[in-house]
Computed example of a mutant assay.
Amino acid sequence: MAVKPILKMGNPALALVSSPVEDPASETVHNLLQDMRDTLDDVNGIASGTPDR
């Protein structure tokens, strides 16, 4: 799919509150997860982290 930019600590976008996911099985969520896999593969990553709030 697509390689996305990786946001690092201090980026204001990481402080935004996300919207609830209405359908975790939707194509939109599937595409997002594929983009995350592609991005991690591109940087030889093995995991991603999220802010704890």
Rank of each mutant, 00 (worst) to 15 (best):
A47R: 09
T50N: 04
S48K: 01
I46Y: 08
K8W: 04
T50K: 08
M9C: 04
L32T: 01
M36N: 00
L32D: 00
V3N: 10
D41V: 03
Q34D: 11
E22T: 10
M1L: 08
T50Y: 07
G10M: 05
A15D: 12
K8N: 09
L7D: 02
P51D: 01
D23E: 15
K8G: 02
M9A: 12
V17E: 08
L32E: 01
A47S: 13
L7W: 09
D38K: 08
D52L: 10
T28V: 13
K8A: 06
L16Q: 11
E22P: 00
L32P: 00
T28L: 11
V3D: 07
P24C: 03
L7F: 13
S19E: 15
P20D: 12
P24D: 02
V21P: 00
D52N: 13
L16N: 06
A25N: 15
Q34Y: 01
I6K: 03
S18M: 07
L16G: 00
G10S: 05
S26E: 05
A15R: 14
S26Q: 06
S19A: 15
P12S: 06
K4V: 07
N44F: 08
L33P: 01
I46K: 01
P20L: 13
R53H: 07
I6H: 03
V17H: 05
V29L: 14
I46E: 03
M1R: 02
L33C: 10
G45M: 10
P5M: 06
H30Y: 07
K8E: 13
H30V: 09
R37F: 06
S48T: 13
T28M: 05
L7E: 04
A25T: 14
L40A: 02
G49E: 04
P5H: 07
S26T: 07
V43H: 15
D38E: 14
Q34F: 02
A2T: 14
S26K: 08
K4T: 10
P24K: 04
A13Y: 04
P5N: 06
E27G: 09
D42N: 15
V17F: 02
V3M: 07
V3A: 10
P24A: 05
D41Y: 03
T39E: 02
E27V: 14
E22V: 10
V29S: 03
P12K: 05
V21A: 08
N44Y: 10
K4M: 09
M1G: 06
V17W: 03
P51Q: 07
D38T: 11
V21L: 15
L40Q: 01
V21E: 06
V3I: 15
N11C: 07
R53P: 05
G45F: 12
N11A: 14
A47Q: 03
M36D: 00
G45N: 11
R53Q: 11
N11R: 01
P20Q: 09
D38V: 05
D42R: 07
A2N: 11
H30Q: 13
R53N: 11
P51V: 10
M36I: 15
D41G: 03
I46C: 09
P20V: 14
T39F: 02
S26R: 04
V43F: 12
E27F: 06
K4N: 04
M9D: 14
D52R: 12
L16Y: 03
A25V: 04
P20E: 12
N11L: 04
R37S: 08
D35H: 09
